[in-house]
Amino acid sequence: MSPGTTTEPATRLDLPPRPRTWPRRTLVFSALTAFTVATCLPAIGGIEIDLAAIAQNWRHGAANLSALLQPNWSFVPRTIQPMLETLQMAFVGAAIAAALSVPLTLWAARPTNPNTVTRTAVRAVINVVRAVPDLVWATILVAMVGVGALPGLLTLVLFDVGIVVKLVSEAIDSTDHPYLEAARAGGATQGRMNRALALPQSLPLFSNQWLYALELNVRISAILGIVGAGGIGRLLDERFGFFAYGDVSVIILEILVVVLLIEAASNVLRRRLA
């Protein structure tokens, strides 16, 4: 465990040959270096590391920062309605997603759906949904259904369904379900087994992820308004646009408090449900 204690041997010991790890190490190291260098080449789309620009911006930035540190408390009343909308979206979105996630998860897990074709299809759709970032969904949905809470809600539902179905179906896959063999031996259909046994047995897995989705929703719905999908993000974006950093800092603090409160509440609930 502690190769550091090996000192130069006084007598010549008959050492077995050291395993040759350096070719592989060199290969991995140079691959990583090459990749990193490539990400810093502006000519092919990489990033130009320009510390001078930041230094130049710093005076301007310092002023902004000090404005951010002086919250404008008189702005609080205007934030309450949008904050409420944010919470409503988060909660309703999580609830709709919870309802949708049950059949989809049972479809996507091997013990509850032995049919390879439908299982693979559901998983593929879920993976595609998950590969699109939340704010990208919101941007496109706003363009499709118009500004408001509806595209925000749809974004949250898509995001939650993706995360719950993936995590819970993987958890179901990785646990043993001997009771399903017993039910199968008793002549039960897959649907009946899932409903009567697999679902109640997996409910803690579900409720855990539902709560997690609710926590994430509060954080996401706070920013959805930036692209016009409702909630407090719209106000945040507007205040940023007016350089009203005192108002911005109030909104950020509120989001911080609400997120921490929701996390604390869901931790309490989790312990009670366990």
Binding site: P178, Y179, E181, A182, A183, G186, G187, A188, T189, R192, M193, A196, L197, A198, P200, Q201, L203, P204
Partner: peptide, 17 residues
């Protein structure tokens, strides 16, 4: 091979499925 989180009653009813 019982569903451990399900009550005895419903575990037994599985035999009627």
């Amino acid at each position: 091979n019982l569903a451990t989180r399900v009550d005895v009653y419903r575990n037994t009813l599985v035999g009627r499925f």
